[in-house]
């Protein structure tokens, strides 16, 4: 495959991945607004978001100027995923136990 065609296909893949990522972010927001209770909203928040960010990251990956940038993006995604899952667990635990300072 010659160089321009390869680049074109890469750009097409990037665009498709980014669109997919945006779709999951939309789903996350729709879930956050539509779902009836706190726990269900947490589901939408953690899962849709992490996948959305993952797809956006994959879309930007081929456009990365150097390897460090690519690795940093990957690191960012992993960190966001760990923080998201842990945060969701903490918020759910707080709600289950009902020991937040707002629940008196």
């Amino acid at each position: 495959m010659d160089q321009p065609t390869f680049g074109l296909i890469l750009n097409l893949i990037s665009t498709l991945l980014a669109c997919g990522g945006a779709l999951f972010f939309i789903a996350g927001t729709v879930g956050l607004l539509r779902l009836p209770d706190l726990y269900s909203r947490l589901h939408a928040l953690t899962k849709a978001d992490n996948l959305g960010l993952g797809l956006i990251m994959l879309a930007v990956l081929p456009q990365a100027p150097d390897l460090f940038f690519a690795l940093k993006m990957l690191l960012l995604w992993v960190l966001v995923m760990i923080a998201g899952a842990t945060g969701a667990h903490l918020i759910a635990k707080r709600a289950v136990r009902g020991d937040g300072e707002d629940i008196l």
Binding site: L42, K47, N50, A85, A88, A92, K93, R97
Partner: peptide
């Protein structure tokens, strides 16, 4: 395990 439960389809670890 707790963190991955929350990223799996349809499950969310709420308390241990």
């Amino acid at each position: 395990f707790l963190d991955t439960i929350s990223l799996l389809p349809g499950t969310l670890s709420a308390d241990l």
